[in-house]
């Protein structure tokens, strides 16, 4: 919620700067199995975000002192490419990406059946190639698809979405300008079936009513995003079967 400004984020017709209505998502496209070396992978385009996710494991955890005798540990690494933002980002982990890696690891640990793999680790590499607001939830959404395609047992798929406040109004899925000049941003990660919240952060201020409205919007959008995740996973297998069905 950077600088206060007099930029109008909502026009007189109630549309936003990119022409979306308050409850409209940016276009989302997910592709699975894009990397051969990884055990599972996914590529997501969410508005201007372009993110590649690779999953390795479960495999024995190293260094050995990080092993947990009861369950697997999920090591997510969120990393932004130097060219992913307007001004060159200094490469390497910084305070922000370490924090995002941590919250994503914890969100995914709630979905993956970690207790089946004592002493193991599951690596999730989230590489942001192009950033355009909402990269953490886009990365989380793609990561859960990549985990499922790696054949890792999960209780549920994790779906991420944001809502926020711009020009005093609650809207879904903030874009870059809205994120920079809006008043609040609320990213959430939710288990698609049970509706349990596994990730929630907030930047800026929301009243209780506004928060409730934002949550409601997110929960509604989760269904749409989950449908895209499912299409991405199943698509390849269904089309192969159709192709073969013609024989």
């Amino acid at each position: 919620m950077g600088t206060a400004s007099d930029i109008k984020l909502i026009d007189e017709n109630g549309l936003r700067v990119d022409g979306r209505s308050p409850t409209e998502l940016r276009p989302i496209k997910i592709e699975t199995d894009v990397l051969d070396r990884a055990d599972g992978s996914a590529y997501i385009e969410w508005g201007g975000n372009k993110i590649m996710v690779a999953v390795y494991g479960p495999r024995e955890a190293y260094p050995k002192h990080t092993q947990d005798i009861e369950k697997a540990i999920i090591k997510a690494r969120y990393n932004m490419a130097a060219f992913s933002v307007d001004e060159r980002k200094r490469p390497g982990p910084d305070r922000r990406s370490v924090e995002i890696s941590k919250v994503i690891s914890e969100a995914l640990s709630n979905a993956v059946m970690v207790e089946q793999f004592p002493r193991a680790q599951i690596d999730v590499f989230i590489e942001v190639l192009q950033a355009d607001a909402g990269t953490r939830i886009a990365g989380l959404t793609a990561a859960s698809v990549a985990l499922a395609s790696a054949g890792i047992p999960m209780r549920d798929l994790v779906v991420g979405c944001t809502a926020g406040k711009i020009d005093g109004q609650i809207v879904l899925d903030l874009g870059k300008e809205e994120d920079n000049f809006g008043q609040a941003d609320l990213p959430m990660g939710i288990l698609s079936k049970s509706g349990k919240v596994v990730l929630m952060q907030m930047d800026g201020d929301l009243s209780v009513e506004e928060f409730d409205k934002a949550t409601e919007m997110i929960l509604d959008a989760i269904k749409r995003i989950n449908e895209i995740q499912r299409q991405a996973l199943a698509g390849k297998f269904i089309s192969l079967a159709l192709e073969r069905g013609g024989e």
Binding site: M154, L157, A234
Partner: peptide, 13 residues
């Protein structure tokens, strides 16, 4: 004739 078996995702009933 090829037909697919039912495809499920994590969490599907």
């Amino acid at each position: 004739m090829a037909e697919t078996k039912q495809i499920v995702m994590p969490g599907d009933l």
